[in-house]
C-alpha cells in the first residue's frame, strides 16, 4: 500500500495535518471539535441529507457538509461561524415543526445547544401518520420520522440487502414506505431489526419496548405474542 499524502488545513484557527481522504468531520473530531450530525450513522453511508454538519470553508460560495467534504491542502474552515449557527438553528426549528422529535434526546440536546425555538414556526404542516402496528417485532410511527434514510439504507445496500423499505412521496411529504404500502409481513422483510437499530427517533420501535411503554406487563406481552403466532398459523 502506498503512503497516503498528508494535508495541512486550519480548523477554527488550529493548524492540523490529516491524511488525504479524510472528511472535514473526521478532521474536526481529531481536534476534539464537536460538529452536530443528524442523518449520519456509523453503519450507513453518509449521504449529506440533513446538512446539520455544515461548516464554512473560506472561499466557497455555500456551506460545506463536513460528513462528505474531503479535506484539501490549505483549507481554512470554521465550524461555528454565524452563518453555520444560523443554518443549524433554522434546520432544527423547521424539523421540529414537521416531525415529533420529542423522543430523541440527541436532537433535544442540539435544540438546546443552538437555542432553537420549538415554537418558531406556528401553523406549520405536521407530518402526521397513523401508527403502523402490523407485525410482532416492531411498530412504525412515522410521525416521528425525520427522513434520515438510515432504515432504508440498513434494509438495502448498507447491511441487509432485503429492500423491503423505500421512499414514497416527494419533498416535504416524502415518507418511508413499502411496496404499495403493504404491511411488513407481506413484504420481503426478514425482521432482522437493523432498521430499528439505526433509527434515531422512535419512529421504529421494538414492539416489546413499545408495549411496555404503553403499560403492558411482560406476561401480557408474551400472551399477545402467542396469540399473534397462532393467528398467523391458522391463516396459512
Amino acid at each position: 500500500m502506498t503512503e497516503k499524502k498528508c494535508l495541512s488545513l486550519n480548523i477554527n484557527g488550529i493548524e492540523c495535518q490529516v491524511p488525504e481522504g479524510t472528511t472535514l468531520l473526521e478532521a474536526a473530531r481529531y481536534l476534539d471539535i464537536d460538529i452536530p450530525v443528524i442523518c449520519l450513522h456509523e453503519a450507513t453511508t453518509a449521504k449529506g441529507l440533513c446538512r446539520q454538519c455544515v461548516v464554512e470553508v473560506e472561499g466557497r460560495r455555500t456551506l460545506a457538509p463536513s460528513c462528505i467534504t474531503l479535506a484539501e491542502e490549505g483549507m481554512v474552515v470554521f465550524t461555528e461561524s454565524e452563518r453555520v449557527v444560523r443554518v443549524r438553528r433554522t434546520i432544527l426549528e423547521m424539523l421540529h415543526a414537521s416531525s415529533d422529535i420529542s423522543h430523541s434526546p440527541a436532537l433535544q440536546a442540539q435544540m438546546e445547544k443552538y437555542t432553537a425555538d420549538p415554537e418558531r414556526f406556528p401553523g406549520a404542516k405536521k407530518r402526521q401518520y397513523e401508527i403502523l402496528d402490523d407485525n410482532p417485532f416492531y411498530v412504525r410511527d412515522y410521525s416521528q420520522c425525520i427522513l434520515c434514510w438510515r432504515c432504508v439504507q440498513a434494509c438495502g445496500d448498507d447491511i441487509q440487502f432485503t429492500y423491503a423499505l423505500g421512499l414514497g412521496g416527494r419533498g416535504h411529504d416524502s415518507r418511508i414506505s413499502t411496496f404499495y404500502e403493504l404491511p411488513m409481513p407481506e413484504t420481503t422483510c426478514v425482521f432482522c431489526g437493523n432498521c430499528v437499530a439505526v433509527c434515531p427517533t422512535e419512529a421504529l420501535q421494538d414492539k416489546t419496548e413499545y408495549l411496555l411503554e404503553k403499560g403492558l406487563q411482560h406476561h401480557e406481552i408474551r400472551a399477545r405474542r402467542r396469540q399473534e403466532r397462532q393467528g398467523k398459523r391458522s391463516k396459512s
Partner: peptide, 9 residues
C-alpha cells in the same frame, strides 16, 4: 425532491 433538509423543510 425532498432529499436534503434545508429545501425539503
Amino acid at each position: 425532491c425532498g432529499k436534503c433538509y434545508p429545501c425539503q423543510l
